[in-house]
């Protein structure tokens, strides 16, 4: 009962304190707001870059050209052998005549060349299209397929894909590092602003100590205050993220320049980002206050 009473008092006092020290609170809130807007921007960018990378990677396929004259039974056996390989997610068989049809549909000039051929003498080969579970292993899978019988050749655009994978990997890591670095910088900035705020209330802490408040008694209201500052500070970043992102998404029709570069659908992305911002704001506010008040507890 006593614990709840004290907790209630702490929450009430810290809420009051935010408004009683409004100009100082405003400084902390502004700092949280501005830095979290930058964090939100970097989070949205990073998530979309990752999404682009994922989309491109998902479309990467190994094309297995099958030896001419392979019977249906041999083709099926080859399929089974491919299934047994590591990192193979799925395989699709494509008949040479279907491929011919697709080629003609795509480009009419093929019709002149390919219409001369029959199923028996067409230069087009039957294919297996393979998707892998781990894009970084695409080369390894391709090499293993090459070793199988009745495989004429394997194609996955080695040089371009390898460099794309490297670029995506670097981009991903860079975006993660930049978000983490930004969150840390935010924590540091907010913590310092709150420190200045609390420095001006050094006297208040001194009085609290003098009347017999334990360190915990003193810390808790300030931590709650930091929490409130954090929550208030995230309001604008959350509104900007939610409405801003939806507006951008609608403006670009969900993709940037090409269908390859699809933006992440706003739902539930904006809600997840907002929740993350709120958590960051709350934690950073609490941590900032805790760090700041701790310095003044030696009187």
């Amino acid at each position: 009962m006593k614990l709840f009473r004290m907790l209630g008092r702490n929450i009430r006092d810290s809420f009051k304190s935010v408004f009683r020290n409004f100009s100082l609170s405003l400084a902390s809130i502004s700092c949280i707001t501005i830095t979290l807007i930058v964090v939100a921007l970097s989070m949205v960018l990073s998530a979309n870059v990752n999404n682009f990378a994922d989309n491109v990677e998902k479309d990467l396929t190994i094309v297995v050209f099958i030896e001419r004259g392979a019977s249906d039974e041999i083709i099926e056996k080859l399929g089974d052998s491919i299934d047994l390989l590591n990192y193979v997610e799925s395989k699709t068989f494509k008949d040479r005549m279907d491929i011919t049809k697709e080629m003609i549909e795509e480009d009419r000039t093929f019709e002149m060349i390919l219409s001369k051929y029959t199923r028996e003498n067409t230069p087009v080969r039957d294919e297996y299209l393979i998707k892998v579970t781990d894009i970084e292993k695409i080369g390894e899978v391709a090499d293993n397929i090459r070793k199988l019988d009745n495989v004429y050749g394997v194609e996955y655009g080695e040089t371009i894909i390898d460099s794309l994978i490297t670029i995506f990997d670097v981009l991903r890591k860079a975006s993660y590092i930049s978000v983490i670095a930004l969150v840390l910088v935010t924590a540091f900035l907010i913590s310092n602003t709150i420190k200045i705020t609390i420095f001006s209330r050094k006297r208040e802490i001194e009085i609290m100590r003098l009347v017999g408040a334990s360190n915990l008694n003193i810390k808790i209201p300030f931590i709650f205050e930091g929490l409130f500052l954090g929550i208030i500070g995230t309001i604008i970043p959350i509104i900007l993220t939610t409405y801003g992102y939806v507006a951008i998404y609608q403006h670009f029709n969900g993709q940037v320049f090409s269908p390859f570069l699809k933006l992440i659908s706003p739902t539930p992305f904006v809600y997840q980002t907002s929740l993350l911002l709120l958590v960051i704001g709350m934690l950073v506010g609490m941590f900032g206050s805790y760090r700041a008040v701790k310095k003044h507890l030696k009187i």
């Binding site: 614990l3 004290m6 009683r20 020290n21 001194e206 009085i207 609290m208 003098l210 408040a213």
Partner: peptide
């Protein structure tokens, strides 16, 4: 004096007791 400038007379005095978690 060392009073809390932003608190009323009542709040200043009550503060000590609140710290101890005494009922309102």
């Amino acid at each position: 004096f060392k009073l809390l400038e932003r608190s009323t007379v009542y709040e200043n005095v009550a503060f000590t007791l609140e710290v101890f978690g005494i009922p309102k």
